[in-house]
Design a protein around this nucleic acid. Structure first.
Lengths: 214, 214
DNA sequence: CGACGATTTGAACAAGCTCAAGTGTCGTGG
DNA sequence: CCACGACACTTGAGCTTGTTCAAATCGTCG
């Protein structure tokens, strides 16, 4: 079993916050997935969205020649799967064993305000990520990624990575080798400590924060 | 006056489609801006969103050292300015003389479905752009950009660019020199023809399409 | 005509990629 | 309990793409 699943119980408080305000919450079924399982595929019929009870998910897109861009990672408590059309524009797969609560999208003319807000936050997040990928160098991208993961995990200086180096590389628009080299450099500089390849301790938070927002 | 404004009347049909379905449409005031004018700034109070009557707009973000990422360009008929919080996350500026219709966001619990759809489409667009910037090379990025502009302008093979090379570079995560070199290469290969630096004729659409989606 | 800003072109450089080999870790089976 | 194999990750060396810095050209406007 991956270190991630062992050390990180689902943050129940955060997980509940969204469902509480959705009237159909108690009707929503929960499905469980093994690690590396497909949740939906690009082009597939959409119509539902999902909240993660526990586990982690990657949303990504492929080019014809196999190049892959990971659009987002989602952790326990977060929601994903909103689509403007009837079909999914991306693939969604689990990283680790994962349970999802499925919500069916209202077919009415109006949409709950908190759903709108969740969608808009996903949009802002994607747009912020554009800056990282478009204008920051490898070190800055990794720093931004680590700070983002830290903020979402609520620990003081400990980050558990549910994804592989390849996933990180495909999220940050880098190669697996560059990701590895930057992490090694950070370790050599005393900026981080790697307990194992999926567990990072952030030793110099101010350095990382300065890099991330350069 | 820029060639863009001279040659491109506002596409009235498309411009009307959104406003028609918004009940407050007839109450919405219109404001006009000169070229290169600020519409709103990052951190500024938000609460309204905008539809372009005529003209064009860039949405962007800055790093401390001046690096800039253009998140999106918006043309006549399109909407922008949705925010999940009370403050703008980005800057919005006009590229050319522009008129905007301002809509005040409903403060209710529910949001019109078509507003949700517009927001989700902006999200998908940003996420698609991540793939371009994260995983495509300079030629592919320019090709994708030209095809996108073509699709939004409705012409058969003619694209008018309301933005400078610097804007294009900051949108595509490249430098101004690389943008210029790729365009020159495309011209040398007979893929495009440059009437002037802001007006492009697409001669080999299939080549561009293949590059863009490679 | 002349000047300014935008764009293009050239040459050298560097960040990150590719290809290749090495190291570590974990699960399985003897 | 230890050996083995598979796979993920790390490290190294050379190369490519796109950047940087610099200069030339173009277009527009007074």
């Amino acid at each position: 079993m991956l270190a991630y699943s062992d050390t990180r119980p689902a943050p129940a408080a955060r997980a509940a916050s969204f469902a509480d305000r959705i009237s159909v919450a108690r009707l929503s079924p929960i499905s469980t997935f093994t690690a590396e399982a497909e949740i939906y595929a690009q082009g597939e019929k959409s119509g539902a969205f999902y909240q993660i009870e526990y586990g982690a998910v990657r949303i990504f897109r492929l080019l014809a020649d196999g190049r892959r861009q990971v659009i987002a990672f989602h952790l326990a408590g977060e929601t994903f799967g909103f689509e403007p059309e009837d079909n999914h524009h991306f693939f969604a797969e689990t990283l680790v064993p994962t349970a999802l609560r499925t919500f069916t999208q209202p077919r009415h003319d109006a949409v709950p305000a908190n759903m709108m807000k969740a969608a808009l936050q996903a949009m802002i997040k994607a747009q912020q990520h554009l800056l990282v990928i478009g204008r920051q160098n490898a070190g800055e991208r990794i720093a931004a990624f680590l700070m983002d993961m830290l903020n979402r995990q609520g620990e003081h200086d400990q980050v558990e990575l549910p994804m592989s180096r390849q996933d990180m590389a495909d999220y940050l628009g880098l190669t697996i080798e560059t990701v590895s080299r930057v992490l090694s450099r950070f370790r050599a500089q005393g900026v981080i400590r790697l307990h194992n390849s999926r567990s990072v301790e952030l030793l110099k938070l101010d350095t990382l924060r300065r890099l991330a927002t350069s």
